[in-house]
Design a protein around this nucleic acid. Structure first.
Lengths: 237, 237
DNA sequence: ATGTCAGGTTGACGGTGACAAGTAGCGCGC
DNA sequence: GCGCGCTACTTGTCACCGTCAACCTGACAT
């Protein structure tokens, strides 16, 4: 590649400028043409620089890609913190954070896949750890208030699994296969996850196979006791 | 590539034999060295055949990879059908299938990722549809028995999301980062998912933000009413 | 023996990530 | 004002990849 457009050499100390330009170019290409189109050569050319220069700022193509994503993921952190700032009830707050997580993932499916599905890098590990922390922060008050029971770490992990699934199941699919109402999807899945987590701490033996009888115990409110599920030994199919 | 080892030409009608040999070789390489190591050239060489011959049986590298995985996924179908054959209670049966799904995914993390995370092919769509069906088969009796409420499709989709997450969260990580007790992990996450699904149909307004009060209603058994959560207007943190 | 055709091979193209080694420009110390 | 050294970047080059068009060849039916 002959130097395109006579790019000026950065002054010492301004080497990082190329880095940000590369990131911007990579982001542009990523959004416009997808992951596979982001090639080291292409990004370099878009900035007007030769290929190996990219390696002065990024150890590999993957690191470049992940660096592009990280910018967006920082936004997730803020969103999740903000999401429940006006909510007092800890369980509601947790639910809100879960909805936020899902909504965020579905807004950036490409980047989500890139960071979460590919082979792990240092950057992606950082992202995962942050996500875990944001959730754990919301789980802890729930445990303190008695809404959730059990180990905070284990609960958070289970929550993460559920949330990640909600996004990861859709992210690789073309958008036309997504549910029509994404808000409802996010709310539903978030509810599934938080209520599931709540149930976890209330199971007699968490590792046993729970039957409809366990369910009857869990989901029977005092007022409608006995009406929720059939009588003991309820009809099978 | 000079012909390695004097491979005999297959007789007409036996062309499919090379296909199975290629699959076996690809599988060997996949397990031994990971996804990236499975290259068209490498697989061909392992069988003792030239590179373009692979294209006589697989449209592309990705199709080859997916074909390798599909063999294992058929096993999942059998496993999920068998898993609950001796269980009468539909809710227990669903739980068993969920555990089976997670366990399967964690036994074949590499193949799981390959099929579920990569860009979708016809083969992977087929796989996903099968999984959905296996679960839906178990959801339906639950709905019929009243253990679950709501649309079967929607419930199944939510379940899928949770289960997929449980696997997909761990699959890309190196095994040393996995929980120590995978059985418990599978059982826990399966419980979270099925109880969460059960809760979904019992929420007053599924799309609203549920608070601890909702939780109290759901998880209070007649016998321990009032002891599960704090009194109405429970302490916040 | 010969035609046919499935089951391969040859050779090459365009593109990729990665790197070793060289070069040009800037700023600082003198 | 001048050269030294550091930094930012370039040149040139590997090794390898997936994919394809075109050609060859051996086994069988006749």
């Amino acid at each position: 590649m002959t130097r395109a457009g006579g790019r000026k050499r950065a002054r010492p100390g301004e080497g990082a400028r190329l880095r940000t330009e590369l990131l911007a170019a990579a982001e542009r290409i990523l959004d416009a043409e997808g992951e596979d189109a982001v090639t080291v050569r292409g990004v370099a050319a878009a900035v007007g620089v030769t290929t190996p220069s990219v390696y002065l700022h990024f150890a590999s193509r993957l690191e470049l890609l992940h660096a592009v994503c990280l910018g967006v993921w920082d936004e997730l952190g803020r969103c999740m913190s903000d999401a429940a700032s006006d909510v007092d009830d800890p369980f509601s707050a947790l639910h809100r954070r879960c909805v936020t997580y899902i909504a965020f993932g579905l807004e950036h499916p490409l980047r989500y896949r890139l960071v979460m599905n590919g082979r792990a890098t240092e950057a992606s590990r950082q992202v995962a750890a942050d996500c875990f922390r944001y959730l754990a922060e919301a789980v802890e008050p729930c445990v303190a208030a008695g809404a959730l029971r059990g180990d905070v770490g284990e609960l958070t992990r289970a929550l993460c699994a559920g949330l990640h699934g909600a996004v990861a199941l859709l992210a690789p699919q073309p958008p036309e296969m997504w549910p029509h109402d994404l808000d409802t999807y996010a709310a539903n899945t978030a509810s599934l996850v938080v209520f599931g987590a709540a149930a976890l701490g209330r199971l007699p033996d968490p590792s046993a196979t729970p039957g409809s009888d366990t369910l009857a115990g869990l989901f029977t409110t005092p007022s409608v006791a006995g009406a929720v599920c059939g009588p003991p030994g309820s009809p099978t199919v």
